[in-house]
Design a protein around this nucleic acid. Structure first.
Lengths: 249, 249
DNA sequence: CTTTCCCTTTGATCCAGATCATGGAGAGAT
DNA sequence: ATCTCTCCATGATCTGGATCAAAGGGAAAG
């Protein structure tokens, strides 16, 4: 059941250590800087941050870290999608969430990660040495504030997801997933009826506390009823009102 | 189904505005100061905090605020237990969590609360004016750091609860609830086999995504099997290993 | 081109937990 | 002491979604 993903950063991950004046341009050209926690920093502080930054790339379906690993680094996603999950001993899996560009990974950790992170697509991240990042956050009040905003926001999303997992029926869960995913993507790419779904049906099921069969049947029915349209690597939403109504009712 | 709780702070809530030198002693004698976010502040800063603090008391079964209310205040619980919940239009309810002494309420809010808070027992809280508290957090780096630690910790707990709601069977959910609640109480009162349960069966059910019947049957079976013992207003844990084993298996 | 592999879809059946129904027990009120 | 109200317990039945089973379908490998 469990794919044996290569642990990275191994030979599959390309590392770009950040040294010298070149870095300023890397962050300056960063497409997620307005969404990411580093938006809290000014030009000089960004340079300071870049000194503890490695830019890394993951191919699809590669582990970034595993639950229980010592959390030596924290990350900001600059492109691609990752799956964050917790595994039970008997193979059951809960997908905690999906990380997309602008997301910070490592908010909820002690010294050890509480979940595993695997790339779904090609992924680019900024890796920060955790002690150094923590020191910077202690010095730069704006950064700490931004981290807290981020953690609070995530906490709100987590609480919403508890409602979905605890009290929603199967159809409502899938509708909630599509609509929330659409909202998140809209912040990055602008509103669009076509929705990329880099995760598979099993990932969606494990996110929603359902089986792959139930997710598949629900989507298939909506396709038959012209609520959504199957497009390569995603769906097109034809009747958003119907999805919203499913959630309200 | 829904009890009509009086909105507070109305006539039922007693307000103790904090003015003059008396305040120092209030915080100085506070039994949760080591756990609460105010532990980040020194003596002078505590005095500053007390200037924006009201000490309030709620009788049992009273609303502190409702989901959607403008979040004019944030709170620290100093005694008692509150239930935090979200309600769906058709009466379904998800209990997000229970707030106990030392807990900060208002981490995950925008301008409006995303959940309702109701007292289960007599409750004492410190109420902070939100804009003033936010200003203080902006000025006092230690306070912001503590808030962030708190939010991160809560986020980790929320993610654990997602696993419970998404992938655990009924018996495992109840075992997880008892063990986690015991851990939280142990931080306050020290380890004890006797566990106070200020929330009702329905509250536990709505926290775990189950029905009251399933919770009741599970507890009844464990009582028959001498895993737990019924005591007034709580239970006594006779066989903790059995509960832990339920979670592992 | 064919084979293999993985993911998804679809149908048939099953079951854990929901729902329905009833009774009991304690706490306040009168 | 009796009524009422609110919880909680427990038995009977039902059902939404899980599980079991089988068959496409597309991409990559041979």
């Amino acid at each position: 059941m469990e794919a044996h993903l290569p642990t990275s950063p191994g030979p599959l991950a390309s590392l770009t250590p950040c040294g010298g004046g070149q870095c300023a341009s890397v962050c300056a050209e960063c497409r997620v800087k307005l969404y990411a926690v580093c938006a809290a920093l000014d030009r000089d502080e960004i340079n300071e941050l870049e000194r503890i930054t490695q830019h890394i790339t993951l191919p699809p379906k590669t582990a970034l870290f595993h639950a229980g690993d010592a959390a030596a680094s924290v990350y900001t996603v600059t492109s691609g999608t990752l799956r964050l999950q917790r595994d039970l001993a008997d193979g059951r899996r809960q997908v905690i969430g999906f990380a997309i560009p602008g997301d910070f990974i490592g908010l909820a950790m002690d010294d050890h990660f509480g979940f595993s992170a695997d790339s779904l697509t090609h992924v680019n991240l900024c890796r920060f040495d955790r002690p150094a990042f923590a020191r910077l956050a202690r010095e730069k009040h704006g950064l700490m504030g931004r981290l807290h905003d981020s953690a609070s926001h995530e906490l709100g999303l987590a609480q919403e997801h508890m409602v979905v997992l605890g009290r929603r029926r199967a159809e409502e869960r899938v509708a909630a997933f599509i609509l929330r995913w659409r909202e998140r993507m809209a912040r990055l790419t602008g509103a669009s009826a076509t929705l990329a779904l880099p995760m598979g049906r099993q990932d969606i099921a494990d996110h929603l506390g359902l089986t792959i069969e139930t997710v598949s049947r629900t989507l298939a029915r909506w396709m038959r009823e012209k609520v959504i349209l199957d497009v390569p690597d995603g769906i097109r939403i034809l009747d958003q009102a119907r999805l919203e109504q499913t959630l309200a009712g």
